[in-house]
Amino acid sequence: MNHGKPDPHVSRPRKRRAHLIFNPVAGQGNAEARLFVLQDILHPHFDLTIELTEPDIPVEAMAQEAIAPGVDAIFAAGGDGTISGVAHALIGTSIPLGVIPLGTANAFGAALGIPANLEAACQVVIEGHHQWVDTACCNGRTLILLAGIGFEAEMAERASREAKDRLGALAYLWAGLQQLQDQEEFQVSFCLDGQGSDLMAKAITIANAAPSTSVLAHGTGNVIADDGLLDITIAHTENRLEAFNALLQLFRSALTQIPPDRENIIGLRGKHLKIETDPPQKVVLDGEMIGTTPVEITCAPKSLRVFVPLVPEQESNLQKLLELDHAEPGT
């Protein structure tokens, strides 16, 4: 009898080994307090190593160094830029990415149903359910969300760091309303899966994954993160009223998942896209300005493993499996 003492011969489950990359300047709020909450929630479940991002060290390099034998997961706590940088290092590996949204928009987390609440997002990685999702390569850079050309790129540049700190997500709306009156049309030559075309546009958005709040991405009605396809939306409007109505139609499409019925909005899907514009247009990639056109984008189907919440149907099926697993033989 061991009188309740631990038996040294009984092996205990190994704690999962995880690496947390934390961006202290992402979003709003007290970074030290948020980091303390993360440690308090995650430490009981993971053998956790924590590393803070630094301005002069690329997030991609930090994540690459974190990949080591025995690492079960890498968590990215920050905005979409931080998450994209960590994802870049994990593409093509079996190491899952834990998304802990701390930024202004948190679009990637929202696209996959990951809650923006800190405690709830931690619970997703603790539960450990994962999904393989697509990524893409845009001019040699990793794309997990979307690339914007024209209107969206100019809007993102207008939404300064100061405005995001002061207004939060409303900074993008304010920037968009300002850009409506200034955006000029441009000539587009594009080739999608070998089929070329020329047209005029004011906005082009190429999406791999997009929440409903990424309004300009929903020209196809439903952006699916694991279908092996890029979703391309091309919009051309003659004046501010047309532009405003087009935005409303795209917002309705994002909510209903029904493609917009407007001649000045084109929705396409494909695997490989080349775009040239005249004059050259600014390009924003996953919230970061990367230069100007031309761009070449290729989808990489199901190349990234991400922790995601169980949907109700999955929870029900999991419960049935657990019940069957514990059922008596012959029942």
Rank of each mutant, 00 (worst) to 15 (best):
A207H: 12
A156R: 07
A209L: 05
A76F: 02
T277I: 08
D226C: 08
D193T: 01
A217Q: 07
V86E: 08
A246G: 09
A156K: 05
I204A: 05
V59G: 02
L90N: 01
A210V: 06
N317S: 13
V311I: 08
A153K: 10
E263D: 15
E32C: 03
E242L: 07
M289S: 11
K274E: 12
K164H: 04
A300N: 15
L97V: 10
E154S: 13
S316H: 15
N317I: 00
Q28Y: 03
D231N: 15
T298M: 12
R269G: 10
R161D: 09
I83D: 03
D134I: 11
N2P: 05
H3T: 04
E238Q: 14
C299I: 15
H43N: 15
G92Y: 11
N106P: 12
E51F: 02
E315W: 05
H88I: 00
H272N: 15
F186H: 01
R141E: 12
T220C: 14
I41T: 08
A110V: 02
D227E: 13
L102G: 02
G228T: 14
D182E: 13
L20R: 04
V71I: 15
A18V: 05
L250H: 05
Q314F: 01
A73D: 03
G219H: 08
E60L: 09
T53V: 00
D7M: 05
D198Q: 11
S212Q: 07
L318V: 00
A66E: 09
E242H: 14
E60G: 07
I95C: 02
A63R: 10
A116Y: 01
L250N: 08
G98M: 07
A175P: 05
L173T: 15
G219S: 13
G219A: 13
A159R: 03
L180M: 15
N106T: 01
E54K: 14
E32R: 14
K164A: 04
V295F: 01
L177G: 02
A33T: 10
A169R: 11
V223G: 07
R158D: 09
G128K: 03
H236R: 15
T82F: 06
L143S: 07
L229C: 13
L321T: 00
L118M: 12
Q183N: 09
P6A: 10
E154L: 08
A107Y: 10
R166L: 13
I91R: 12
R262H: 12
D40H: 15
E313G: 02
I67D: 10
H9Y: 15
V71L: 03
K202N: 15
G81P: 07
V125N: 02
N2Y: 10
E315T: 08
I100N: 11
I126H: 04
L318I: 02
